[in-house]
Design a protein around this nucleic acid. Structure first.
Lengths: 126, 126
DNA sequence: CGCACCCTGACACGCGGCTGGTAAGGTTAG
DNA sequence: CTAACCTTACCAGCCGCGTGTCAGGGTGCG
């Protein structure tokens, strides 16, 4: 069995147990649990924790940023809305149709749907 | 000339002049300047500011998050690194449909999957 | 000319994220 | 049984974000 307890995982990855739980709470590295609820860190989780650390210092990003990036992946509509908003800044002409973009078809669909939602200016909510 | 000064733009978009400068500092909405340095808000900027506001409240994101999203668009290397990291284990735990499964079983399943990811997923700076 | 606006920079302040620590209780192994 | 772990939940200090405000100086227009 190549799984470590949270304390062991902490010492070998340079995080604190507290932060391991926090990182899990952010949804970034979730350790499987034993039958009684103990977190079990396997090689995959350890590797992920180390690369996470690497990411943070190499690019000077914060856990919260990664949490947001995660959210973008879990909420395509949000990602689409942002895509749309950012693209409205570029003076480039309507370059909507992508020639080679297989996996993002469904995403493009979402974007369109929500861009219309957003640009249909309704700010009367009070 | 359909440009507004920062104070006018503020009152018509619901931001404060202070926040307009802050938003610009984050790189989110940059207004062109007059010869003497005054910010000139045109229809495009005003629309962008309103949509930004809409984004923030509709999806409950923060300006800092948007700043990070902007950074992702300006630093493809960072975006790639995140892509890489997330793809090494991205599943949706809250959506796992299995009703009840012995802990040890799905634990083994997870670990197996992750080991495979690790051994085969040699990310050679893709 | 004067007033009202703009600029940048700086300080202030509340709130919430990050991180540690601790308490109360369950689990594992000797 | 005991000791050393683990769990969750809470409280506390630090710090940065969001925001207001002020100071010192420039601009535009009646």
């Amino acid at each position: 069995m190549t799984t470590l307890t949270i304390h062991e995982a902490a010492t070998t990855t340079g995080w604190s147990p507290r932060m391991l739980r926090y990182v899990e709470q952010l949804g970034l590295v979730e350790a499987p649990r034993s039958a009684s609820g103990y977190r079990l860190y396997g090689p995959a989780q350890l590797q992920r924790l180390r690369t996470l650390r690497e990411l943070l210092e190499r690019y000077d990003v914060e856990l919260g940023d990664l949490g947001f990036a995660l959210r973008l992946r879990r909420e395509p509509e949000l990602a689409g809305a942002l895509d749309d908003w950012f693209s409205s800044q570029l003076e480039a002409p309507p370059q909507r149709p992508e020639p080679e973009m297989p996996d993002s078809d469904w995403l493009a669909f979402e974007q369109d749907k929500h861009s219309q939602l957003l640009t249909s200016g309704r700010q009367d909510t009070a």
